[in-house]
Design a protein around this nucleic acid. Structure first.
Lengths: 250, 250
DNA sequence: CGAGGCCTTGATGCACCTCAACCGACGTGG
DNA sequence: CCACGTCGGTTGAGGTGCATCAAGGCCTCG
């Protein structure tokens, strides 16, 4: 948009006051339910818009926790790893979503956050957030809602991982992406995946070959069209039936 | 302890002020980090000690959310269900742990909570908790830590469900129980399971027969002794190696 | 003493993993 | 320019870990 003359001296940190008041993601993010004055207070705390290049880390497991991050643009994944190298993608994250919630408990990050495309995040110093939320009840409440939503989301993933077949998992995944794109004003039926088959597989508890085969199967049935990372959903209703149709014996 | 002369007219609600100040679970629960005066304020909000009979519901999916619950005694499970009847146990919960966090986001419970043995819970009206935590920063912070810990725990379960084999899952599960019993002053190596094989299976994403076989296998290797629900851990180190030993190719 | 709940164990089948070959897109360097 | 390697994706063939189905044992409770 506006590339100011001077290039910043440090890494990739731009010291731009990114007031929440003018942010288009207001209605998806922390400021939900706040009045103008309150948004201003929050905006004064949330400084720095930091750029994260595709493939680089926003934070790493074990590093110190100071701030939450809100995704302003781009797309990120979070993943946890075992000592033995095993890895599990715990989530894919879009604009308006908060990262770093897991780190509050121990004051250390418990997962890696990696950009899947060039991204920008706002930094929200957590101590300050707690401080101002004492005087802004609706901010505190919204923050609690966001944490709670994350717990609900995780329970959904546990259900998926614990009891769904490969095709059901993929259908659930696609519908979830579809809904989230749609909320953000993008097409619900035509979008590009930012992640590889392997990353999808890690998230869904499948191997990449199985993910690929599940894509092909859904395409053969004319439910979706797949061209590499480009996905079109041709029949969202039939895709929905894939979520919970088969093998409901237990 | 003290069965007051009059039996309560309503269901199973005893109107006993259970001050947090004298509760033995203080160091596991919400009051962590609070001074005496603050604990008193919290204790005044947390009234009612409610009894839940084994097998009965603390709350059900879809019902209105008003209060969080802290387990004072007993053992509970939470589970989510799909429309099609599929069910997933999302957690087993012991004394000092908080239930209802998932319901903050929508003001409705998103899972069922069922007592696996006769239990008692404290009721914490959520609106009041938010209110008093405005004036007690350490209470707010502790609450955030608890929510965050729940998110971290869920990520661990996702890793388990997404990438572990049956035996690894069971080993992880037993070690987790062991640690939590130990924190509460019980034996880390000798305890009784409160849940059935089927419930364990649902939590671990396995069928009950597979759980049973995994128990038998660990017993054959002299790592644990199993007598129905009674578990003895004979070799905790070897049990630990079971968590992440095999098939770490990826 | 019978019924039902919970658990164990065996036999069989299948969904997914594993291994391998191949393809196209892309970048790099001779 | 093409040769080459790498990376991500697809597809096939074969193996396996777990689900499924089935039988039987133990315990509790009426």
């Amino acid at each position: 948009m506006l590339t100011d003359s001077s290039t910043p001296s440090q890494l990739d940190i731009l010291n731009i006051k990114s007031s929440c008041a003018t942010c288009s993601l207001r209605e998806l993010c922390l400021p939900v339910g706040l009045d103008e004055k309150e948004v201003q207070v929050l905006g004064d705390v949330v400084s720095h818009k930091r750029k994260i290049q595709r493939g680089s880390y926003l934070h790493r497991t074990g590093t110190e926790f100071q701030t939450l991050f809100a995704i302003r643009s781009g797309f990120m994944k979070t993943c946890v790893l075992e000592e033995d190298g095993r890895q599990q993608v715990t989530g894919f994250h879009m604009t308006g979503e908060l990262l770093g919630l897991d780190a509050i408990s121990t004051e250390m990050h418990t997962c890696d956050a990696i950009a899947l495309e060039d991204s920008e995040v706002c930094e929200i110093p957590f101590a300050k957030l707690e401080e101002i939320s004492r005087t802004i009840p609706s901010l505190m409440h919204q923050f609690h809602k966001i944490m709670s939503r994350e717990i609900v989301r995780d329970h959904g993933v546990m259900l998926l991982l614990g009891s769904m077949k490969a095709e059901e998992r993929l259908a659930t995944f696609l519908l979830n992406l579809s809904r989230r794109f749609s909320i953000r004003g993008y097409s619900a039926s035509d979008f590009n995946l930012r992640m590889t088959r392997e990353e999808i597989g890690s998230y869904l508890g499948l191997k990449l070959e199985t993910v690929s085969r599940a894509f092909s199967k859904l395409q053969d049935e004319n439910i979706i069209s797949v061209d590499n990372k480009h996905i079109q959903i041709n029949d969202i209703e039939r895709l929905r039936t894939k979520m919970g149709s088969s093998s409901c014996r237990s």
